[in-house]
Structure formats: structure tokens, C-alpha cells
Nucleic acid binder design. Structure first.
Lengths: 198, 198
DNA sequence: TATCTTTGCTTAACAGTGTTAGATTATTTA
DNA sequence: TAAATAATCTAACACTGTTAAGCAAAGATA
């Protein structure tokens, strides 16, 4: 009767192998290269048996996403445990979040819907850089002459852009923020950064 | 000889039809539903003729991306023209950016690599909400009792998250920020928000 | 006008995708 | 050993992006 357990253990192993193969493929070739047949190749099975372990491809992504959040939670626990001051703890938690994003880039991508857009970022033409330049120049204009230098403008530019783009993409990928909250965050952040520049 | 021009005009029209059909499909069914054959159906041709106008599917996305940046630039010009104070102008520009993102949601998605992740956001399980809750609770802990209420914590939480996630995804989709700049933005923003809370 | 060439467009195909049904093999049970 | 069950594979379907070959109409040339 112990053989039942052995078999269950083997099944569990295969399930893990599927997940491990998936993340390996993604790390080597990117998300768009992940296919059921490629996963099957790695675990030395044919594609249909994957469906004995996961309902479909999305279910695999879902499980990887879940594991990503678990990993992130653990890193945050660790960050907390390394400090006593709550403010320091919070700072360490966000830095852990940052580090996680790049240490587990592929997981972060699927967790938060970040596409590595082969095409869009190319120096396709001037059009793409125009909005960025308009903002950059306006920021430069506002900064008092004595503080004004390229690095400072860059910092402010990316701070603005990060908070606005971040809030937009959070809104687009989940649907839990209220309009009122969005406006609050937006106005506060923009106003705050403008104040900090003068 | 004027017929040459007429024909060129017709070709240009077809090119525009391809782009218009593409964005229509995306608006109706999302980016993952966009296919060459579907585009061809809409413009009443077969798929291969699209390749007379665009090298491949990516080239269509690229052109839509470009047009997105042109639209965004115009909206920003308008924002500038409606104010005289530079700080007001800058604020209006970011608000124009925000409005554009939701008015032209599909364009924004392809311009900035935002995936509408059918799966990830579901209330799949507690694991997903854990990191968020940890951060939320820590923020609540830091805020002085007299200011502490749910709305305020929410605002600060989303401000933190937006700037960190925004900077991460900007880094992941383009490759132009330096490590030094990232750290500068990150530390400044986190430190700034923490200060603003107390 | 009759032939030749170019253009516009389609059909057919290739290699790949996720997914399912049916057949086949191997293992366990009686 | 025979029957029943489980594990696995083959084959297929309906898609995907993309390319090559072919056809039919239009234009140019003689």
C-alpha cells in the first residue's frame, strides 16, 4: 500500500518538473516561446500528459504566478526581520520588492503583466521620443537655475513617469482602485514632486 | 498619368484600413485576438496582401505604437497651450498622459507593454494578497494615530506601489536608465513618501 | 488588334500553436 | 494467466504567422 504514496510522490514530481521546465524555457527564450510541446520535450513526455496535471496553459502560468507571490512574501518577511524600526522595515520591504523584480524577472513579468516589447522600445523614430522630450524640457524649465543639471532633471523625470505609469498599469492589470483614490494619488504625487523641485 | 496618383491614394487607403481594422479588433477582443486573417477579413482581402503593406505583424504593432506617441504628443501640446505657468503646464501634461492612457487604452498597452493578464489578478488565493497586506499593514503602523484611516493608508500604499512598480516596468521594457539613476529615484521616492506620512 | 508583361490578388502550403479523442501499451488486480 | 485499470502516445482539429506558386485582369508593346 505504500506504493500508492510512491506513485503520488512521482506525480507530484512530474508536476514540479512541468513548472520547472516552464520557467527554464522562459528564462532561456522568453514568455512568447513557451509552448506545451516544448515543456513536454523537457520532461520527456508528450504534450497531452501535461493536461493530467494542469487544466491548460493558463493554469501553469497561474501556478507560477502564485509561487512568485509566495517567494516575494518570504523575501519581505526577511526584510522585516532584519530591522526593528518600522520605517526602516518598510523601506527594506520595498527594496526587497525591487530586488525580487530583477532577480526573478520572468516571475515578475507574469505576476504584474509586464511585456518585454521587442518592438516598441527601438529607436524607431523621433515620434517616440517627442513626448518624453516635451516633459523633460518642461521639468528643466521649472527647476531653479542653481539646482538645474542633467542628472537632477533625469531623476525628477523618472520619478514623475514612474508614479504615473505605475498607477496606470496597476489600474489596467487589476481592477481594484477607485477613481477617487487614483485622483488622490495622482494629484498628491505630481504636486509633491513639483514642490520638491523648487 | 493622374491614375498613378489615384492608385497610390488607394494603396494608402488600404494601408490605413489595415491599421484601422487592427485597432478595431483589439478594442473589441483584445490584443491576443488580433490575427492577420481577422484583419484580412475586415478589409475584405486575404491575409497575404497585408504583407504588401507591412513586413509582418510586428510592423503593424510598431506603426500603431508610433501613431500612439504622435497622438500623445498632440494632447500634451494642447495641455501646454491651456496654461501659462510652467508648473501648471507640467501638471496638465501628466494629466493629459493619464487621460490618454485610458481614452486610448489599447494604444497605451502596446506602447508601454502593459499586458491585461486575464489570469493573474483573479482572487486566486490568499497567497497573492499576502505581500500587499504586509506592506499595507506596515504603512498603517508608521502613520501617526491622528492621521491614520483606511483612505489615507490606501493613498500612501498606492503611491509607494506605483512609483516602485512603474520604475521596474520602465526598466524592463526599455533599457535606458542607469543603475545609479534607478537607485536615486527609488531612495528619493521611498524616503519622500515615508517623510510625508509622519 | 494580338501578344507580352506587369499588377493585384488568391489558393495552397509549411511549420508552429493549444487542446481533445481514440488507440495503444504497461501495470495492477482478481 | 485473464481481466481491468492506469499511463502514455498518436492523430487530429482549428487555429496562428508567413511564404511560394498560380491565376486573372489590366497595361504596355509590337
Amino acid at each position: 500500500m505504500a506504493s500508492k504514496e510512491r506513485i503520488l510522490r512521482l506525480k507530484d514530481e512530474t508536476r514540479n518538473n512541468i513548472l520547472a521546465a516552464s520557467i527554464d524555457i522562459v528564462k532561456e527564450e522568453g514568455w512568447q516561446a513557451l509552448s506545451m510541446r516544448k515543456i513536454a520535450d523537457r520532461i520527456e513526455y508528450t504534450a497531452p500528459i501535461i493536461y493530467e496535471y494542469f487544466a491548460n496553459k493558463d493554469a501553469i502560468l497561474n501556478e507560477l504566478t502564485r509561487q512568485g507571490y509566495v517567494k516575494l512574501s518570504k523575501l519581505m518577511e526577511k526584510a522585516i526581520s532584519e530591522h526593528t524600526d518600522p520605517a526602516k522595515q518598510l523601506e527594506a520591504m520595498w527594496l526587497a520588492y525591487w530586488d525580487f523584480a530583477f532577480a526573478e524577472k520572468e516571475l515578475y513579468q507574469v505576476m504584474y503583466g509586464v511585456e518585454v516589447n521587442c518592438c516598441a522600445m527601438q529607436n524607431m523614430c523621433a515620434d517616440i521620443q517627442l513626448p518624453m522630450n516635451m516633459l523633460w524640457d518642461k521639468i528643466e524649465e521649472i527647476i531653479p537655475a542653481e539646482k538645474r543639471n542633467e542628472k537632477y532633471v533625469d531623476t525628477k523625470y523618472y520619478t514623475f513617469w514612474s508614479v504615473v505609469h505605475g498607477l496606470i498599469s496597476i489600474n489596467m492589470t487589476r481592477k481594484l482602485t477607485s477613481d477617487e483614490l487614483n485622483q488622490q494619488v495622482l494629484k498628491d504625487a505630481i504636486g509633491g514632486i513639483i514642490l520638491s523641485m523648487r
